[in-house]
Simulated scan of single mutants.
Amino acid sequence: MSLDTPQAETRRERLTAHEALQRLEHERTSRLTQLRAIEETRPDAEEQVMSTQKDTIRRVLAEVEAAVARVGNGNYGICRDCAKPIPVERLEILPYTPFCVPCQRKAV
């Protein structure tokens, strides 16, 4: 099923706040674990690669924190650009995304 097409009627349109927070907590924990693993690697590891990986993980952590804030203020699952609901399938794959697929494509 394409993520830019409307969901089937049998699918829920939104994740519950509890489900969203569980997924976001999993993402946060995974990224923090990755960051710790990178920081504990041997000193002879390629510095540039490690720096890039850390920057990417920190960016995703910031996105996860922003998504947690959206859960708190009731905006989670609503596209930041078009204000339409983000399909639940997309949120299951990328729980911290602030955009639906069409708006994400426009942003790139």
Results as ranks from 00 to 15, higher is better:
Tyr96Met: 08
Ala20Trp: 01
Leu15His: 00
Pro95Leu: 02
His26Asp: 09
Arg58Met: 08
Ile93Met: 15
Arg58Asn: 12
Cys103Val: 05
Ala8Leu: 15
Ile93Tyr: 09
Glu89Thr: 07
Cys103Phe: 07
Arg36Ser: 14
Leu3Cys: 04
Ile86Pro: 03
Glu92Ile: 07
Arg14Lys: 08
Arg36Thr: 11
Thr5Asp: 05
Pro102Arg: 01
Thr33Glu: 14
His18Thr: 13
Thr33Gly: 12
Pro6Asn: 11
Ser30Cys: 13
Gln53Leu: 13
Pro102Asn: 08
Val108Thr: 15
Ala62Asp: 03
Pro95Asn: 05
Ala67Trp: 00
Val101His: 01
Gly74Phe: 04
Ile57Phe: 10
Ala37Asp: 15
Glu39Asp: 15
Thr33His: 11
Arg90Ala: 02
Glu9Thr: 06
Ala67Arg: 00
Thr33Leu: 13
Asn73Ile: 06
Ile38Asn: 09
Ala67Phe: 01
Ala66Arg: 04
Arg80Leu: 15
Pro6Arg: 06
Asn75Tyr: 02
Ala17Met: 10
Asp4Ala: 08
Thr16Cys: 08
Pro95Ala: 04
Ala66Ile: 06
Asp4Gly: 02
Lys54Ala: 12
Ala67Cys: 06
Glu27Gly: 04
Arg28Ala: 06
Arg31His: 13
Pro6Met: 11
Ala83Ile: 05
Gln48Pro: 04
Arg58Trp: 07
Leu3Pro: 02
Ala37Trp: 05
Ala20Val: 03
Thr41Val: 12
Ile86His: 03
Pro95Lys: 00
Gly74Ser: 12
Arg42Gly: 11
Leu35Phe: 02
Thr97Arg: 03
Glu25Asn: 14
Phe99Ser: 06
Ser30Lys: 04
Leu21Cys: 08
Ile86Met: 13
Met1Lys: 04
Phe99Asn: 08
Arg11Leu: 15
Thr16Phe: 03
Gly77Cys: 12
